[in-house]
Design a protein around this nucleic acid. Structure first.
Lengths: 204, 204
DNA sequence: TTAAAAATTTACCGCTCGGTAAAGATTCGG
DNA sequence: CCGAATCTTTACCGAGCGGTAAATTTTTAA
């Protein structure tokens, strides 16, 4: 009875559904996602979904929050490092993902990007993404601010700088995913180093 | 009989279908696009589409080439200007569109971005986008190369620089479209100016 | 003028989709 | 141990989808 693999409570089922949704989404893409595909990705029947969620849209909304939670939960910080190292670490994490789960990172990003793009047709989802985006950018802006306060960086417009870095990260990811440019993240990393971060030091 | 508005030849009809597809796509998004929606956007019946195109996928492929053609056709060049002006002009055109058709530019970009993202699930479309992307980036790289040859710019890695600029443009557009950040293009323009293009002059 | 070819419309269809209702199984409270 | 509540499965459905076939109109070529 306390057999760990037989225990399936309500919360576990919803988690199972989330993971199945993730796999189905990875395989078929958002446009061609059918409830049936999700059912095929789990041991349970597809109809259980309707018991736990109120239809397809509700499911997708729940999944959106789920994947964003995972994203933000995977970000690690080392508050003690110097601003430059901290900044580098954050950029790396956004571009390459946490070291230990590299293999799922791009699958997750693929799905994330697809939902991100379709959000233009959905006010609800757009709002969720906006809040998430603010947090990500904010965390980078913060590091730049610290660097300036500590006198390591020049006094630049932090919002503009944070936004620029976030944008480059975003574009490189999108390019790797949509166009298949495997080296996009690494190249973006170098470009940020060579052409952007030097603006934090140069005395204009 | 030579009444200009009554004349409807085969090529014209395909053009009508392309425009209707564009409008339908703008309204409903790729995911929720039905053949019926396209029919609703034109005077002709929706079944004519099946006469001119071999099903929905064939239509979408044709439309993809159509919209990319439009995009590239709208780019104007002034070969005589100095490299910096030329570069500025190109960036502006990518970010804000040709002056005279600003009102359609963002509708087109919206559709473009959606197809771009979905291309990750479609090898055929991905290939088309890759070729297109190479041309756009190439045109920017070219200008930077000219600037270096003419001694106006520092001797940077042109591919990396071209890619970076293209990425920032792309991300800003995506952000305006998906998240609704109206000021994204202008902010990106400033960021490019302040933090990237200065790398073309600074002596390291 | 006319007949064939091209283009469009009308009418229709099979299938797949998301969703539901009721039966069945499992868990929980006493 | 039992009854109730929770959860899952089985069986099914109607709406809406992309697509087709044949009738109809328009254009083309003689």
């Amino acid at each position: 009875m306390s057999d760990p693999q037989e225990k399936v409570s309500s919360k576990d089922t919803e988690e199972v559904i989330m993971e199945a949704t993730f796999r189905a989404l990875s395989k078929h893409g958002y446009k061609d996602l059918r409830m049936r595909d999700i059912g095929d990705e789990m041991e349970l029947t597809r109809q259980v979904i309707h018991y736990h969620f109120d239809g397809k849209y509700d499911l997708m909304s729940a999944f959106l929050e789920h994947i964003i939670e995972q994203y933000e939960g995977s970000v690690e910080v080392d508050g003690d490092a110097d601003p430059r190292s901290e900044l580098d670490a954050r950029i790396d994490q956004c571009l390459f993902g946490p070291e230990f789960e590299e293999f799922t990172h791009w699958d997750r990003m693929k799905v994330y990007h697809e939902l991100y793009t379709y959000a233009q047709n959905d006010g609800e989802h757009r709002k969720v993404f906006n809040e998430h985006y603010d947090r990500i950018r904010g965390s980078i802006v913060e590091v730049v601010e610290d660097g300036i306060e500590q006198g390591e960086f020049r006094d630049v417009n932090v919002d503009r700088m944070g936004q620029l870095i976030t944008d480059v990260i975003h574009a490189a990811r999108g390019r790797r995913i949509s166009l298949g440019h495997e080296d996009a993240p690494e190249e973006a990393r170098r470009a940020i180093d060579e052409f952007i971060l030097d603006s934090l030091y140069a005395d204009a």
